[in-house]
Measured scan of single mutants.
Amino acid sequence: MEQGTVKWFNAEKGSGFIERENGDDVFVHFSAIQGDGFKSLDEGQAVTFDVEEGQRGPQAANVQKA
């Protein structure tokens, strides 16, 4: 798993970007967020995640709040 920080997340659209510790920013969709309840992330929040190849390039998967 990688570690990173939420660069921004739009709760209305359900997507945003995570700033990786090593590498380019990666797209995140709300469906990749693990946990119960409303799936959203806050700017500056620390997260851990896997990276998968999506239709438009790398994207975060199995996102967990650190």
Rank of each mutant, 00 (worst) to 15 (best):
M1H: 13
M1I: 11
E2P: 05
E2R: 09
E2W: 15
Q3W: 15
Q3G: 07
G4Q: 01
G4Y: 00
G4K: 00
T5C: 15
T5F: 13
V6R: 00
V6F: 00
V6W: 00
W8V: 04
W8R: 05
F9V: 05
F9D: 06
N10I: 04
N10S: 10
N10T: 04
N10W: 08
N10P: 06
A11T: 12
A11L: 08
A11R: 14
A11N: 11
E12N: 12
K13V: 11
K13I: 13
K13P: 03
G14S: 02
G14P: 00
G14W: 00
G14V: 02
S15A: 12
G16W: 03
G16L: 01
G16S: 00
F17Q: 05
F17A: 03
F17G: 01
F17S: 04
I18T: 00
I18R: 00
I18S: 01
I18E: 03
R20W: 08
R20D: 05
E21G: 09
E21T: 12
N22F: 11
N22L: 09
D24M: 12
D25L: 15
D25P: 08
D25R: 09
D25S: 10
F27P: 01
V28A: 01
H29E: 05
F30I: 09
F30L: 07
S31D: 06
A32C: 05
A32S: 10
A32T: 04
A32F: 03
A32K: 07
I33H: 00
I33L: 07
I33V: 07
I33N: 02
I33Q: 02
Q34K: 11
G35C: 13
G35I: 09
D36G: 11
D36T: 13
D36R: 10
F38D: 08
F38S: 06
F38P: 09
K39V: 08
K39S: 06
S40H: 10
S40V: 09
S40A: 08
S40E: 07
L41C: 04
L41I: 05
D42K: 15
E43W: 14
E43F: 12
G44R: 05
G44P: 01
G44Q: 04
G44Y: 05
Q45L: 08
Q45W: 10
A46V: 13
A46Y: 13
V47H: 00
V47W: 00
V47P: 02
V47L: 03
F49C: 02
D50F: 14
V51G: 00
V51T: 06
E52S: 09
E53T: 11
E53P: 10
G54L: 06
G54Y: 06
G54S: 10
Q55E: 13
Q55K: 14
Q55W: 13
P58Y: 08
P58T: 10
P58H: 07
P58A: 09
Q59Y: 14
Q59I: 12
Q59D: 01
A60W: 02
A60T: 02
A61C: 11
N62V: 02
V63G: 00
V63I: 06
V63M: 01
Q64A: 10
Q64F: 07
K65A: 11
A66G: 10
A66M: 14
